[in-house]
Design a binder for these strands. Structure first.
Length: 270
DNA sequence: TCTCGTGTTTCTTG
DNA sequence: TCAAGAAACACGAG
């Protein structure tokens, strides 16, 4: 599920372990999600460490322990869970942190997710160099305009999915942003007028903020769906209709991903 | 049996 | 060197 707001949702799930000392770590260390990681060092370092903070940025998460930094990317099918202390690891549970009161679990059937581990007083380099988040003041209209100028021929849908520029935007968020802006997903970036870019910019900010607000107000252990009236609710099925004009949504592969849009509200570029 | 997928990385082509 | 598209990764759900 993991796009911006879902990642934030999963980060909070592990809050149950704050302030507790890790008594044991279990890992399927031969799995793909540990590629490039010294798993022996990870296991040895986290055992006995205390979880004291966590952060999310786009689709990335970072958990601060007293003896290292654990980075997690959920890929396409990853999830974080909290289980009982004696919970036996299931087939796709690749990393388990045993704490006095709970077990923190990272599961991922398709193994597209990723674990990173870093030791040092400061955050890992890859975290420090992340692009400005969509919610930040550094994410500006000027920045977005220059990104689109540099990708003149690419369809806007594909560019919205580029994490170095739009951290946290995934397939459904991109479709939501385009639908709100009334821009066809196949429109080449170079052909979008300044007024259109401004609409896209404002929609990006709004979708990110509203999705995060949905998570904040859900405050339970279930991921609350976005408000009614979002394209989100219509884009999955084959019979989805436009929440604005009730036209049946079109579906096709654009920018390498399945894309849903309303041909009436988002006219195809000439 | 077959197709599809809420993501990234790497390869290929231009 | 860069932009853009395709393939690869792996496995469950429908």
């Amino acid at each position: 599920m993991p796009e911006l707001a879902e990642v934030e949702f999963y980060r909070r799930i592990w809050n149950a372990g704050f302030g507790q000392r890790v008594t044991n770590v279990e890992a399927h260390s031969d799995k793909r999600i540990f590629r490039g990681v010294d798993t022996a060092n990870l296991l040895g370092s986290l055992t006995g460490a205390v979880l004291d903070a966590s952060f999310s940025h786009g689709k990335q998460m970072l958990f601060r322990f007293s003896n290292g930094w654990l980075g997690i990317h959920l890929g396409m099918t990853g999830e974080l869970r909290v289980e009982a202390t004696d919970f036996p690891a299931e087939k796709h549970d690749h990393l388990l942190l045993r704490l006095p009161n709970v077990s923190l679990v990272f599961a991922d059937p398709r193994l597209f997710g990723r674990v990173l581990f870093h030791q040092g007083a400061k955050e890992p380099a890859w975290w420090q160099t992340l692009p400005p988040s969509l919610e930040s003041e550094e994410f500006t209209l000027e920045r977005m305009t220059s990104v689109l100028q540099r990708r003149k021929k690419a369809p806007i849908k594909a560019v919205l999915l580029m994490q170095p520029f739009f951290p946290g935007v995934g397939n459904w968020m991109a479709d939501e942003i385009l639908w709100r802006s009334r821009v066809h997903p196949a429109t080449s970036c170079g052909s979008i007028p300044p007024a259109g870019v401004r609409k896209l910019f404002l929609a990006t900010k709004t979708v990110a903020a509203d999705a995060l607000e949905t998570i904040a107000s859900a405050k339970g252990t279930t991921f609350g769906d976005p408000p009614t009236g979002w394209l989100f609710h219509q884009r999955w099925g084959k019979d989805g209709t436009c929440p604005r004009c009730n036209t049946k949504l079109d579906r096709d592969e654009i920018g390498g991903r399945t894309t849903a849009w309303c041909e009436r509200c988002q006219p195809r570029p000439i």
